[in-house]
């Protein structure tokens, strides 16, 4: 084999099964594995990622304990109400930073090197979504686990829908963050813009405050807010008698926005390459 390969001409180098889609899948898989390996080499960072969702839960749990008593709140158990909201907040404050990896790659020169290989641009975006989804699914599972002794009740379909909603929302937010990173290429700008996006979107949603207790205008705005779509899908699916039509509709909106933003993020490579 070694003799054969050293005389192999470039034309005979196998091109990942020959099909572009296969190459996209293989490239995405390799890039994701590289990121996961790098993460696992940083035990401290892993520990923080695992503790963070518990802190969200305990912090917001305490903070909003009395919220359920507000007039017009509706839901009976504050912890059942809060868990979908916290799951979604966790996505927001995790996925919004995914662009940092791109900025780091640009700084390290790995981005430019990869862009001169046959790597599919989409694979960089997909791998970023996959990597962030893995961490966020683990964190979501932790929130569910810690919520249980606090009195939360779950259904299997409810958990599955919640996971699907978090993955789709992760897709949307990673894509925005990655696109920002490629266009702005600055940590500071990325942090500023991400916070400017994540904070209003979470407050203009029913993540932490019941719509019944919110002003009218927030209720109208939140109907167009992807963060709210994820909260509604998850909360509805976890409720005693889910309205499945609403669940599927909201998952559908999320899927559309995630795909659209993923496509735009892939296009952002063009903007980056025009700058170098």
């Amino acid at each position: 084999m070694s003799g054969a390969i050293s005389t192999m001409s470039p034309e005979t180098v196998p091109v990942a099964g020959g099909s572009a889609r296969w190459a996209l899948a293989t490239h995405s898989r390799y890039l994701t594995m590289q990121s996961v390996r790098a993460l696992l080499r940083q035990p401290f960072f892993v520990a923080i990622s695992l503790v963070q969702p518990m802190i969200w839960l305990l912090l917001f749990g305490e903070l909003f304990k009395r919220v359920a008593e507000l007039p017009g709140f509706g839901a009976s158990s504050y912890i059942d109400f809060l868990i979908p909201g916290i799951i979604v907040m966790n996505v927001l404050f995790g996925a919004s930073w995914s662009g940092m990896t791109f900025i780091e790659m640009i700084g390290q020169g790995t981005m430019d090197r990869m862009l001169t290989t046959p790597l599919k641009r989409g694979a960089l975006i997909i791998a970023s979504l996959a990597y962030n989804s893995i961490t966020i699914v683990v964190q979501t599972a932790i929130i569910f686990l810690v919520g249980w002794p606090l009195g939360a009740t779950y259904t299997a379909p409810g958990i599955l829908v919640s996971l699907a909603a978090t993955i789709l929302l992760t897709g949307a937010f990673c894509s925005i963050s990655n696109a920002y990173a490629l266009v702005l290429r600055s940590r500071e700008a990325l942090i500023g813009l991400s916070i400017m996006l994540a904070l209003p979107l979470s407050f203009l949603s029913s993540a932490l405050m019941s719509q019944g207790a919110a002003p009218d205008w927030i209720r109208s705005v939140s109907r167009f807010n992807p963060v709210d779509w994820a909260v509604v899908a998850s909360r509805e699916a976890l409720s005693g008698s889910p309205d499945w039509g609403a669940v599927w509709a909201h998952l559908g909106y999320l899927a559309v926005i995630a795909l659209l933003l993923g496509y735009l993020a892939t296009r952002a490579f063009g903007s980056y390459q025009r700058s170098i």
């Binding site: 180098v13 190459a23 293989t26 590289q34 290989t117």
Partner: peptide
């Protein structure tokens, strides 16, 4: 990773 990107 580099090799994989070329389909090796």
């Amino acid at each position: 990773l580099q090799g994989a990107l070329y389909g090796l």
